[in-house]
Amino acid sequence: MEDLNWIILKELYRQKNITKTAESLFISQPSLTNRLRQIEKEFGVLIVHRGRRGVHFTPEGEYLAKCADEMITRLRKIKDHVLNMENQVVGTLRLAVTNLITRKTLPRLLKLFKDRYPSVEFKVMTGWSKDVFHLIYNQEVHVGFVRGEYAWPGQKYLLSEEAICIASKEELQLERLPYLSRIDYQTDPLFKSLIDKWWTEHYTQPPYIGMEVDKSETCREMLLNGLGYAILPHSVLGDAESLFKQDLLDAEGQPIVRRTWMYYHEETLELNLVRTFVEFVKALDLKEGL
């Protein structure tokens, strides 16, 4: 069966809706319906029942949908290895990258790699570090760029580490922090737990959240306008010299750092494309961009 058919089964099982599935895969509803009929004909079973509120999978259809991930991964590996037999750096490199790295570093990195290896294409998936970890762990991508410490069983390479600091427009006294207005923002759960752990080790009362924003870059702009303080990695603050910064320290008085890693599976280095990219990244000095 074609890989697109497996992708359709996977997405339809997630959406439980023909229209939404067609839209998410950028194909027409008639084309999707036709492919479903082809799958049913190929396996000789009914895949779904249609209802007013969407589709309902038959037991046979549910089994095939649950096989989709395995089959998609297997087909990708077959294609990778066929291209690898030519001993050239060609094909599609699949990457999972955190949001911050995507904005700050990835475009420059991919341009440099593309300039050297013009036959390479990229498929990039972005999200929080937990999402990136899930994608690389399940081998849905070749390489993942992850911020934070995860229990990773494969190969990894340290790209950078940075201190986490309390930042504000005006100089602050740390003992006064629980009474001051904090700007909070959406972030990765692992990073949030790191901040929460530091807080509970130093204060007996919760922080006063005076403002909540969508992302760290928005938080930075609020800081620059004197609307409160925030706890952020140094990379988000950049060269904002008008802000006062105080590093978070652990019990031994050492700065609490957040590391950025490149994760990959050992066996994927057998692919020329992946091995070349990993070696390329290691040879670059990305610390300024991360």
Results as ranks from 00 to 15, higher is better:
Asp115Ser: 15
Glu121Asn: 13
Leu158Ile: 03
Lys197Ile: 11
His142Pro: 10
Phe191Pro: 02
Thr187Pro: 09
Val132Thr: 05
Arg182Gly: 05
Val120Cys: 07
Gln88Leu: 07
Val132Phe: 08
Arg182Trp: 07
Gly91Cys: 02
Asp184His: 04
Lys111Trp: 15
Ile195Ala: 00
Thr187Val: 13
Leu190Ile: 14
Val120Ser: 10
Gln173Lys: 12
Ile164Trp: 00
Lys169Thr: 08
His202Lys: 09
Ala151Thr: 13
Val97Asn: 01
Ile164Asp: 00
Leu190Cys: 11
Met211Thr: 12
Trp199Ala: 00
Trp152Gly: 03
Ala96Trp: 01
Trp198Gln: 03
Ala163Phe: 11
Gly154Trp: 00
Gly144Ala: 11
Pro189Val: 05
Ile166Lys: 01
Glu161Ile: 08
Tyr150Thr: 07
Phe191Tyr: 06
Leu93Ala: 02
Leu109Arg: 01
Asp184Val: 04
Leu180Phe: 05
Ile166Leu: 02
Arg176Glu: 04
Thr92Cys: 01
Lys192Tyr: 14
Thr102Asn: 11
Leu95Ser: 00
Ile166Arg: 05
His142Ala: 12
Ser129Met: 14
Glu170Lys: 09
Ala163Thr: 09
Leu106His: 04
Lys104Glu: 04
Cys165Met: 10
Gly210Asp: 05
Tyr208Trp: 14
Asp115Leu: 15
Tyr208Glu: 14
Arg108Pro: 14
Met211Trp: 14
Asn138Ser: 12
Arg103Trp: 14
Gly148Leu: 10
Arg94Gln: 06
Phe191Thr: 00
Tyr117Ile: 06
Met211Gln: 11
Phe113Cys: 04
Leu112Cys: 13
His202Arg: 11
Tyr179Arg: 02
His134Ser: 15
Lys169Ser: 08
Phe191Cys: 04
Val120Met: 04
Gly154Glu: 02
Ile164Gly: 01
Asp115Arg: 11
Pro153Cys: 09
Phe133Pro: 14
Thr126Asn: 12
Ile183Leu: 03
Lys111Met: 12
Thr204His: 15
Tyr137His: 12
Thr200Gln: 14
Arg182Ile: 05
Asn87Met: 11
Ala151Ser: 10
Glu201Asp: 13
Ala96Cys: 04
Val146Lys: 09
Thr105Val: 12
Tyr157Val: 09
Tyr117Trp: 10
Pro107Cys: 10
Glu162Met: 05
Glu170Ser: 11
Pro118Lys: 04
Val97Gly: 01
